[in-house]
């Protein structure tokens, strides 16, 4: 094990196997580790001990911004900066400003949601050690990985390897930075 080691990676061939293994790795007390799967596995968040995603907060901020922007913007444009008298209607009313504000709420919520997802996931990240794994094309197809990172305080090469062997990993290998 050199300093160039990112961690130890184990390959599994079924969702049930990787789920069971993830529960064990979680219980072994590792912090810097991950499960790599070709599709989202139902229940894996609990098996990894992940907290609820923070994406909704970004959504909320986006939505509030959108609605405020719509209402204030329309008030500014049609009632303040250049009052526009049309059909005897009031210069400003939340009624006629609602449809546009509603759409802007949704638009900015969507921006918040997607932006939040990319920020929380640290994407785009075109370089990552996991992508150098020699069978990565299987992992975006039908196989499953567990990666334990070398920077984890509990990480020892032998300890992690033994754990993976006990969990029935199909293949165990080092992953370089």
């Amino acid at each position: 094990m050199s300093n160039n080691t990112f961690g130890l990676v184990a390959r599994f061939d079924s969702p049930a196997a990787v789920m069971h293994a993830a529960e064990e790795v979680r219980d072994a007390g590792y912090k810097h580790w991950d499960v790599i799967t070709p599709f989202p596995i139902h229940g894996m968040d609990a098996a990894m001990g992940l907290r609820r995603s923070l994406v909704p907060r970004f959504t909320l901020v986006g939505g509030i911004t959108g609605f405020t922007l719509g209402m204030l913007g329309i008030w500014y444009m049609n009632a303040f900066d250049y009052p526009l008298a049309v059909g005897g209607k009031p210069m400003f009313s939340p009624m006629f400003a609602f449809p546009v504000s509603y759409e802007l709420t949704i638009l900015l919520s969507a921006f918040g949601t997607i932006g939040g997802m990319f920020i929380l996931n640290r994407l785009p990240m075109h370089y990552h050690p996991v992508l150098k794994y020699d069978k990565i094309e299987r992992v975006t197809d039908d196989e499953f990985l567990i990666v334990v990172e070398a920077r984890d305080p509990k990480f020892t090469p032998d300890g992690a390897r033994k754990l993976f062997q006990k969990l029935g990993a199909k293949e165990i290998s080092d992953l370089e930075n």
Partner: peptide, 13 residues
């Protein structure tokens, strides 16, 4: 890269 930490945020999004 299919990380489950990503999937978690992805599914929520």
């Amino acid at each position: 890269r299919g990380s489950n930490r990503h999937w978690s945020n992805y599914e929520m999004a």
